Amino acid sequence: MEEQKLRGRCLCGLVAYEAAGPVSHASHCYCTMCQKQHGAAAGTYANVARAGFRFERGEEMVTEYASSEHGRRGFCRVCGSTLYWRSEQAPDRIALTLGTMEPEYDGPVERELHTDTKPKWLPVR
């Protein structure tokens, strides 16, 4: 079986990445930090092994923001696209934003995290 590859880029195209699958899980995170970072109801991520992640171009354009004691959020410093979230408590994993992937991620999103802060304005499923 061919190894799954995920690819993505930021809005301006200066940063591009690839990551080897498989995806451990994909999730919608409704924590207030993800809401602020994404300007949306949630951050949506695919969790993969960090060893299989690499920048194809533009690594020098990525800035990390320490949003908590252990959380780091990577984004393009030119266009602001959120590219990933990672935890220093799990250095072998990285969570890539689904909205940056090309082609579009077609796997399932199995988890919803921090549903206690899920916005009330979201439509009911």
Rank of each mutant, 00 (worst) to 15 (best):
residue 2 E to Q: 13
residue 4 Q to M: 12
residue 6 L to T: 11
residue 7 R to H: 14
residue 7 R to S: 12
residue 9 R to N: 00
residue 10 C to Q: 06
residue 10 C to L: 06
residue 13 G to C: 02
residue 14 L to M: 13
residue 14 L to T: 11
residue 15 V to Q: 02
residue 16 A to W: 00
residue 17 Y to S: 03
residue 17 Y to D: 02
residue 17 Y to L: 05
residue 18 E to V: 06
residue 18 E to K: 06
residue 19 A to M: 10
residue 23 V to A: 09
residue 23 V to Y: 10
residue 24 S to H: 15
residue 24 S to G: 03
residue 24 S to I: 14
residue 26 A to F: 10
residue 28 H to A: 05
residue 29 C to D: 13
residue 30 Y to D: 00
residue 30 Y to P: 01
residue 30 Y to K: 07
residue 32 T to R: 13
residue 33 M to S: 11
residue 35 Q to T: 02
residue 35 Q to A: 07
residue 35 Q to W: 03
residue 36 K to I: 00
residue 36 K to H: 05
residue 37 Q to T: 04
residue 39 G to S: 08
residue 40 A to K: 13
residue 41 A to V: 09
residue 42 A to S: 13
residue 43 G to L: 06
residue 43 G to N: 10
residue 44 T to Q: 09
residue 49 A to E: 15
residue 50 R to Q: 14
residue 51 A to S: 15
residue 51 A to Q: 14
residue 52 G to Q: 12
residue 53 F to H: 09
residue 55 F to G: 07
residue 55 F to I: 03
residue 57 R to E: 02
residue 59 E to M: 05
residue 59 E to N: 04
residue 59 E to V: 04
residue 60 E to Q: 14
residue 62 V to C: 00
residue 62 V to M: 01
residue 63 T to E: 12
residue 63 T to R: 15
residue 64 E to F: 07
residue 65 Y to P: 01
residue 65 Y to Q: 11
residue 66 A to T: 05
residue 66 A to H: 13
residue 66 A to P: 11
residue 66 A to D: 10
residue 67 S to T: 12
residue 68 S to F: 01
residue 68 S to P: 05
residue 70 H to C: 03
residue 73 R to G: 03
residue 75 F to G: 05
residue 77 R to C: 14
residue 78 V to G: 04
residue 78 V to S: 14
residue 78 V to D: 08
residue 79 C to G: 02
residue 79 C to A: 03
residue 79 C to M: 04
residue 80 G to S: 05
residue 80 G to N: 11
residue 82 T to E: 05
residue 83 L to Q: 09
residue 86 R to I: 04
residue 86 R to N: 06
residue 86 R to K: 15
residue 87 S to P: 06
residue 87 S to Y: 03
residue 87 S to K: 03
residue 87 S to E: 01
residue 88 E to P: 00
residue 90 A to C: 06
residue 91 P to N: 07
residue 91 P to F: 08
residue 92 D to W: 08
residue 92 D to V: 02
residue 93 R to V: 04
residue 95 A to S: 13
residue 96 L to Q: 09
residue 96 L to T: 09
residue 97 T to G: 07
residue 98 L to T: 15
residue 98 L to C: 07
residue 99 G to H: 14
residue 100 T to G: 01
residue 102 E to G: 01
residue 104 E to M: 05
residue 104 E to P: 10
residue 104 E to N: 09
residue 105 Y to E: 11
residue 106 D to H: 08
residue 106 D to P: 03
residue 106 D to R: 12
residue 106 D to E: 09
residue 108 P to M: 02
residue 108 P to Q: 05
residue 109 V to C: 00
residue 109 V to T: 04
residue 112 E to P: 03
residue 113 L to K: 01
residue 113 L to S: 07
residue 113 L to E: 12
residue 114 H to V: 00
residue 115 T to G: 01
residue 116 D to W: 01
residue 116 D to S: 11
residue 116 D to L: 06
residue 117 T to N: 04
residue 120 K to E: 14
residue 122 L to K: 15
residue 123 P to S: 12
residue 125 R to Q: 11
residue 125 R to L: 10
